[in-house]
Simulated scan of single mutants.
Amino acid sequence: MNDATDPRLTVEQIVDQALELLREEGMDKLSMRRLAARVGVRAPTLYYYLPDKAALMTAMMERLFARCLDLIPPTTDWQTWIRGFGRAIWKVQDTYPFTGELITASILDEDYFARTTLRLQEILKDFGPPIERLMDLQSAVQSLMTGWSTFAHARYAGQLGRILDVERLAFESLDALIRGWRLS
């Protein structure tokens, strides 16, 4: 087993393995002990990298959000960016169907919100409309797409899929939100 000073183990690797553990086994199977076994260390060693499970969950949320932002193609207009953002959220939450559970179980601190807000403002500042309204819109898009994603991954998704095309409705709702959003 690796020890806490092993330079081959990084926080990024731990977070990636935690995401895979969640994807494979679900939220109730996430424990520091199971994660430690997965990365080849003892559980106390993980605390060298992350002080507690709450920090791990924050790091996982930040990683997933960063993946969403990284998936958005370059653009020069806010509508295309917001549409790309919504589609990126859908894709990430489809890849990691436990994201809704992770969102509700995480305790995100002020530093997380400050980092995330700063990154979003940096992206959105040059699109023209008031940054406050674009920040509100991106929050609305996150909520909308997470809601649809929750339907798509619910235990009853099979029955729902027989009466609704959830993905189509998610993207139609996204487009309607963008078209109807007031910038002032």
Rank of each mutant, 00 (worst) to 15 (best):
A66C: 11
R83F: 15
T116E: 15
P130H: 07
D111G: 12
P74H: 07
D70N: 15
L102Y: 02
D94N: 11
E110G: 14
A59H: 10
I82Q: 11
D111Q: 11
T76H: 02
T80R: 12
S106A: 06
E110Q: 10
A105C: 06
R83G: 07
C68Y: 13
A55Y: 11
M60P: 01
T104D: 13
T58W: 11
V92I: 08
L102N: 00
F85C: 13
L124D: 08
L134A: 03
I82G: 06
E101M: 00
D77T: 13
A140W: 02
D94L: 06
L108H: 05
F85T: 02
L144W: 08
A54W: 06
G86D: 02
D109M: 03
W90Y: 05
V92K: 00
T58H: 11
D70K: 15
M61W: 07
I89C: 02
T146W: 09
T116S: 13
S143R: 04
Q79A: 08
A114S: 14
M135D: 14
T95F: 06
L71R: 06
E110P: 00
L118C: 13
D77S: 06
G147W: 10
R87I: 04
S149E: 06
R83V: 10
F98Y: 05
S139L: 15
T146Y: 08
G86A: 13
F127D: 02
D111I: 11
K53S: 09
Q79P: 09
F127E: 12
P73S: 12
I82C: 11
C68D: 13
D109N: 13
I72P: 00
P74S: 05
L108G: 08
G84L: 01
S106K: 03
L56P: 01
L102Q: 02
V92W: 04
R63D: 04
A55K: 05
D126H: 05
T117G: 12
I82Y: 04
S149K: 00
W78N: 09
D70Q: 14
L137Q: 02
G128T: 07
Q138H: 13
A105E: 12
I82R: 03
E132Q: 03
A59K: 01
M60E: 01
C68R: 14
K125R: 15
Q93N: 15
A54F: 05
D111L: 11
